[in-house]
Design a protein around this nucleic acid. Sequence first.
DNA 1: CCTATCACTTGCAATAAGCAAGTGATAAAT
DNA 2: ATTTATCACTTGCTTATTGCAAGTGATAGG
Lengths: 133, 133
Amino acid sequence: MKTETQNYRSKCPLSIALEFIGDKWSLIIIRDMCLGKSKYCDFQASSEGIPTNILANRLRELEENGLLVKRPYQDKPVRYEYFLTPKGADLLPVLQQLVIWTQKYVSECMAPPEDFFTIKPEDLLNRINRVGK
Amino acid sequence: MKTETQNYRSKCPLSIALEFIGDKWSLIIIRDMCLGKSKYCDFQASSEGIPTNILANRLRELEENGLLVKRPYQDKPVRYEYFLTPKGADLLPVLQQLVIWTQKYVSECMAPPEDFFTIKPEDLLNRINRVGK
DNA sequence: CCTATCACTTGCAATAAGCAAGTGATAAAT
DNA sequence: ATTTATCACTTGCTTATTGCAAGTGATAGG
């Protein structure tokens, strides 16, 4: 993951994209947010079983990289919900193509939710306005 | 990277895709093959500077996972060229979406080759028949 | 007061990445 | 014939990242 500003290994757009999301977990979190999840415990509950330290670390990095924002939904203690930014939501077409690929070549995979291929990045953005859970 | 057979952390198609290509280097190699590169030294020469041990390891894994095949182009000593399979070539739409994303959000990135968005996976497949080098 | 939950953080062992150097086969130059 | 060079790796070693388990602090409920 990229954290510090503008120091890419190359200027190839693919290579840069991989510095943002080229690991085993970042896109899993983005996926969960596409599916409507927003809280730490939601991400933790996913069937891949992300370790908690990696989850905390990735949420921080994804926020630093501008793919998501967090908003407190309670004080005492303060707890956050996480929402996709346009930059994060625009990874949806990437996810969709990855899912198409797996469905074509890996028979054991399960089907995505019914509307997964019809939703668009902008559909993911107003969730932050539907005040929190 | 996935190596051994059918033991995925979950059956989610996105998660499975990431077990194949969810790292910083595999898609760089696939990209180079999409751009017509086929030999070890070609991959090594790319501006990201892949370490040689990782390159050898990724070529082996990508082959084990059926994304590419290798074919000797000389004996004494035997040397191989690498070619995308349909399974590997069908990652092109994923690459294209990743490039679209970076171009939208990272101004410092360079432009891909002119025809990058018009080529199709099947265009990448007959290169193995245009006999070597 | 005891227990539990939630969102983390910390410690630590295991794995993977990254760098430099080495290897073996061969060809080309001296 | 010996040296030099190349190509495709492999090996060794150091550093960084992962992943598991356990701990922490704030709070709520019984």
